[in-house]
Design a protein around this nucleic acid. Structure first.
Lengths: 156, 156
DNA sequence: GTGGCTGCAAACCATTTGCACAAAT
DNA sequence: ATTTGTGCAAATGGTTTGCAGCCAC
């Protein structure tokens, strides 16, 4: 990760603008989020990973940091229907939140970074007078890997 | 609601097909879901309402009924980011789940019943090899009412 | 020394589960 | 009789909160 350092500095700036500090705990949290970008980790999972870097950290601090980062729109909270919140780093300059493909066979979550919804949002604006600021889109279905496996089994 | 009775009978059939009964408690639950179709009620909210019809009912029964109805794809569980699950009746013959417009000012949730995503699902299929079975789409933004209010304030 | 930040433990609260009893077939 | 469903109370588990101490400016 070449960009990691600058990304953290940049996040540090955002924090300072909001009158807050980039403490070691927060740094470690952001670090871990960066390192496991597409993994959709829960607070508990993050806890385990962050401890390696910052062994004294408490789970509550992580929740508080994530709340903070969410408010500053640095991360987004996602839920996939199990009762656990997961945290995704918002990509830089990414205006809208990315989408997810949730495989109902293996549980894997893929990310889709194309926007795809510009037209749909036009419709929502014109037909419903609703000014879209953000969205959450998750497709449930079968991922390519699982589909291939299914085909193999059929051929037996 | 003219259609309510037949809708319940139909749901009763689905239950029987799965080897289960349409008990008074379940009937009351479905009734209430029908009555408050677009309200996105939580289990607790449903509990209060269902009690009017079936005062002896326990909250656990409602959770169990909702699980059952969700498995039979009669209702869908939705979450809007507060940690509470809400339950929406799936419309008859509706292949895909409807979308939601969540107003960040007043908190109101509107429903959008047009599909809107057929093209997007094509892309997901071809580019990612992902076979879509269902989706969850929520737009966050400002509803028409709140936008009008904002405009009035600006003019002062 | 004031204000934000932290760790810990306790509290919270939506949901689930165990169990003994009831209803239906 | 066996299976399915129910109400109640207790347990669960992710998340939040209160608080005393800590750190930086």
């Amino acid at each position: 990760m070449v960009f990691q350092k600058e990304r953290i500095t940049e996040i540090g700036k955002k924090l300072h603008q909001a009158g807050m500090k980039l403490t070691p705990q927060r740094r470690a949290t952001v670090n871990t989020l960066l390192k496991y970008q597409t993994k959709h980790l829960s607070a508990e999972e993050l806890f385990t990973l962050i401890k390696r870097e910052e062994p004294e950290i408490g789970l509550a601090t992580i929740y508080r940091t994530l709340d903070l980062l969410a408010e500053l729109r640095i991360v987004d909270r996602v839920t996939f229907g199990d009762g656990v919140a997961r945290y995704d780093l918002r990509h830089e300059n990414q205006q809208h939140f990315h989408h997810h493909l949730l495989c109902s066979v293996c549980g894997k979550v893929e990310e889709v970074h194309e926007d795809l919804l510009t037209e749909v949002e036009e419709v929502v604006m014109h037909k419903y007078g609703f000014k879209v600021q953000d969205h959450r889109l998750t497709f449930h279905g079968i991922c390519s890997t699982c589909r291939q496996k299914e085909r193999c089994l059929e051929q037996e």
